[in-house]
């Protein structure tokens, strides 16, 4: 597997990553996920201010052949969305961890992140799929 899995991030089983910084966090999809989806053509973003609970959908990504919901790795309130993705959805393919971030949130309860996988566990999990 050639995809990257930065060790400072946490990962959900549904392939969203979480970059936790105090009570703020950045969310996107993993390199593995973007490879699976192939050319991403559209990203549906939430509204700033929306509150989304852990595991609930906050948006969706679409390729030509597939669509998948984006689920909140931890509950929180959306503080910023990456509106560049509306014009350049391919950023999710080319730079999933940097320019291709999807939303920033204010986290309800950072301990919810304990339910997520660390990089090593996620790599193992991806191998089983």
């Amino acid at each position: 597997m050639s995809s990257q899995t930065p060790s400072e991030l946490k990962y959900a089983r549904t392939d969203e990553y979480l970059r936790l910084e105090g009570e703020n966090a950045t969310i996107g999809i993993s390199d593995f996920a973007q490879e699976q989806l192939n050319d991403i053509v559209f990203v549906e973003l939430p509204e700033v201010g929306a509150h989304v609970a852990q595991g609930e959908p906050f948006g969706a990504v679409e390729s030509v052949k597939a669509a998948s919901d984006l689920l909140m790795p931890v509950g929180g309130t959306v503080t910023e969305v990456n509106s560049q993705l509306s014009d350049e959805p391919e950023l999710l393919n080319t730079s999933p961890y940097d320019k291709g971030w999807i939303v920033k949130i204010k986290v309800d309860d950072p301990s919810e992140a304990n339910a997520l996988m660390d990089a090593a566990a996620y790599i193992e999990y991806c191998k089983t799929r």
Binding site: E62, S63, V64, K65, A66, A67, D69
Partner: peptide, 12 residues
């Protein structure tokens, strides 16, 4: 815009 159709999206 195929991914929103039933054959791909199914119950969603």
């Amino acid at each position: 815009l195929r991914p929103r159709e039933q054959d791909i999206r199914r119950e969603k």
